[in-house]
């Protein structure tokens, strides 16, 4: 089957647009989460230095800002891993299904 025909069939398949919409929403939600976490941390540094310098418990030296900062680094890695895992399994399976239907 010619590639143009496959493209045309995919375009007509309502599942395709549904899939694109679902995945774009997912990407945008995750991007917004990342922005909220990062810019939230930066704004905390800009506006509330005291809070970040507060000790994690009485008598401790470690301040709240350090686990929070390391937390942002870890969050960045984890949120990326979550997307990659879901996209490589679930999204790719759905996509392959749509392409297979169109190629029949």
């Amino acid at each position: 089957m010619k590639e143009e025909d496959i493209v045309e069939r995919i375009q007509k398949n309502p599942k395709f647009m549904q899939f694109v919409r679902m995945r774009n929403n997912y990407s945008i939600v995750l991007s917004i989460m990342m922005m909220v976490v990062y810019f939230g941390y930066i704004l905390l540094v800009a506006f509330n230095k005291q809070f970040l310098a507060t000790k994690i418990s009485a008598g401790a030296v470690t301040s709240i800002g350090i686990p929070l900062g390391v937390g942002v680094l870890v969050f960045t890695i984890v949120i990326t891993a979550i997307y990659v895992r879901r996209a490589n399994n679930e999204f790719d399976a759905t996509k392959d299904e749509i392409v297979r239907e169109a190629s029949k």
Binding site: S27, I28, L30, S31, M34, Y38, Y41, I42, V45, L52, S63, G65, I66, G69, V70, V72, L73, T76, I79, T80, Y83, V84, A87
Partner: peptide, 24 residues
């Protein structure tokens, strides 16, 4: 001390954006 951490966070946060919106 602490300020170095703020710096390094900034250099990492672009990667999820690339992953979600650009890479594939």
């Amino acid at each position: 001390g602490f300020d170095g951490l703020i710096f390094s966070i900034g250099w990492l946060v672009g990667w999820p954006v690339i992953t979600f919106l650009m890479a594939e």
